[in-house]
Design a binder for these strands. Structure first.
Length: 454
RNA sequence: GUGGUCGUAGCUCAGCUGGUAGAGCUCCAGAUUGUGGUUCUGGCUGUCGUGGGUUCGAGCCCCAUCGAUCACCCCA
């Protein structure tokens, strides 16, 4: 018999892990709502046309398609099958696909419901997305994104607030991070000045790898992509910029003086930096990274990427402004900006840093030991009061060796155990043991509730 | 989609130039019939990923296949 298994790149989440995951989700959700974002959910699957063409050629390949039900070959001719023209055949047999991110379905939603929506529209969405990637460290085929987006507002105040959300959430989760920011307009300006405006995508893919393959690696990549020496020389100028964001932005402004778009990008970043610095951040830093590109090609303005400090891991959050994502679906002139937390990577980082707070081991706070029928009923009465007081509590469902019952509490990470035998029962008291310190004392029911509520 | 590494007990792994498998941890029981985590004692656990080949004989060599993992591309 084959061992049962799950698809590549997917995972089961055990109760112990889910308690911790839910902690992350709740912190993120709380901050989103604190900043005025409202919840939204969209279907796991979308029509294929909704998704294709939004994520670049590479992205299209990574979309999971869903095979049609029934006689799914009925629309495919024998000639098409013979020719093995995959893209043609795929169209005929798969009209649905699993969502690849949350931003595109959101844009689709905004367009479909534009008449019912009050703009600026702020929504958050916490749902899984799927990518047919080959799994590796920190990369899964099914993972959760936690997005907050606002559409219908051009104001850079949104960008500033989104940086504050990054900072608030990651500070609460005890994951100090660097928030890298750049602007697509600047990248476009560079391409323009270098005379390669039409090949901006290629250029950004190359310079995005700077921290991975170094300056010489980037230049080599540009060469193999057959960029001219003049263009490469212009791009090289980027690597020579040093100092704080102000001096670097000034240097870029000089470099981009021939590009109106590029200068607009510089101006935007200056504004965002000024505001963020005036307001201040907690445990995160905002850092200008001119080489930051981001692959999703719908971004047009500010782009974000967040990396946890002191951990070897890809980016844990991303985001950016997209001026015309809704335009693709027929609603022009509505700009949006949003961010995304990668909950699975944040989980991995928190595990590595060991920063989960106590209380994320178990949802149960108190276990009653079971001594038999009479005591059982007595405990059940107390449990009603304890649960009414909002404390998560349970009783071991059968009489058994104390060793076994205490071990159960220990395995489950339950912090308190109440023991009520005949003696306690007759005196109307509870023997309460703190499993962490090992201390045990007799308390009354109100005392116990008071103690566990704290 | 391309390339590398690895599959032996529930987990982490050892196993010499081929001679029919072992350690630690976990788990279970007892020491302790009203107390977990620490300590001590005892015990269970394997189609050596799968299929084929070479050989008197394969965990070890060869081929295939599946799975895991890391890197590239790309990305949370």
């Amino acid at each position: 018999m084959n061992q049962p298994s799950i698809p590549k790149g997917t995972r089961d989440f055990s109760p112990e892990i889910m308690v911790k995951r839910n902690y992350i989700f709740s912190v993120i959700r709380q901050s989103f709502e604190r900043f005025g974002y409202m919840p939204l959910e969209t279907p796991s699957m979308e029509n294929v046309e909704t998704l294709t063409g939004k994520y670049g050629d590479e992205g299209d390949k990574l979309i999971f398609r869903i095979l049609d039900s029934g006689d799914y070959l009925k629309e495919v001719s024998d000639e098409q099958l013979q020719s093995r023209n995959l893209s043609q055949i795929t169209k005929g047999i798969a009209e649905k696909a699993l969502r690849y991110d949350l931003t595109v379905p959101f844009a689709r939603f905004v367009v479909m419901h534009q008449n019912k929506i009050a703009f600026p529209f702020k929504r958050y969405q916490i749902q899984p997305v799927w990518r047919a990637d080959r799994p590796q460290k920190g990369r899964y085929r099914e993972f959760y994104q936690c997005d907050a987006d606002v559409v219908g507002s051009d104001s850079l105040l949104n960008e500033v607030e989104l940086v504050q959300i990054f900072d608030e959430v990651l500070t609460k989760l005890r994951v100090p991070s660097v928030i890298k920011i750049n602007n697509r307009k600047i990248l476009y300006g560079i391409a323009e000045v270098a005379g390669i405006a039409d090949r901006m995508m290629e250029m950004t893919i190359a310079i995005d790898k700077l921290d991975k393959i170094g300056e010489s690696g980037v230049i080599e990549e540009l060469r193999t992509r057959e960029f001219s020496d003049e263009s490469i020389n212009v791009i090289k100028g980027l690597f020579e910029m040093t100092g704080d964001y102000e001096s670097r932005l000034n240097a870029i402004a000089v470099m981009l003086r021939g590009s109106e778009t590029g200068l607009k990008g510089v101006e935007e970043l200056q504004s965002i930096f000024n505001d963020v610095n005036t307001l201040g951040l907690n445990d995160c830093e905002l850092e200008l990274d001119i080489t930051l590109a981001r692959g999703l090609n719908y971004y047009t303005g500010a782009i974000f990427e967040v990396k946890a400090k002191n951990v070897q891991m890809g980016s844990i959050c991303g985001g950016g402004r997209y001026d015309d994502l809704t335009g693709i679906f027929g609603l022009k002139g509505v700009s949006g900006v949003g961010i995304s937390f990668g909950a699975d990577r944040i989980f991995d980082v928190m595990t590595e840093l060991n920063v989960f707070p106590s209380g994320t081991d178990s949802t149960t706070r108190l276990l009653f030991v079971n001594f038999g029928k009479t005591e059982e009923l007595h405990c059940m009465k107390l449990l009603r009061e304890i649960r009414k007081a909002g404390i998560n509590a349970e009783i071991y469902p059968e009489q058994g060796k104390l060793k076994k019952q205490f071990k159960y509490a220990d395995d489950k990470g339950i912090p308190f155990v109440a023991t009520i035998g005949s003696e306690e029962m007759s005196k109307g008291i509870i023997a309460l043991k703190d499993m962490k310190s090992g201390e045990q004392k007799h308390v009354s029911l109100p005392d116990l509730i008071h103690l566990l509520k704290a």
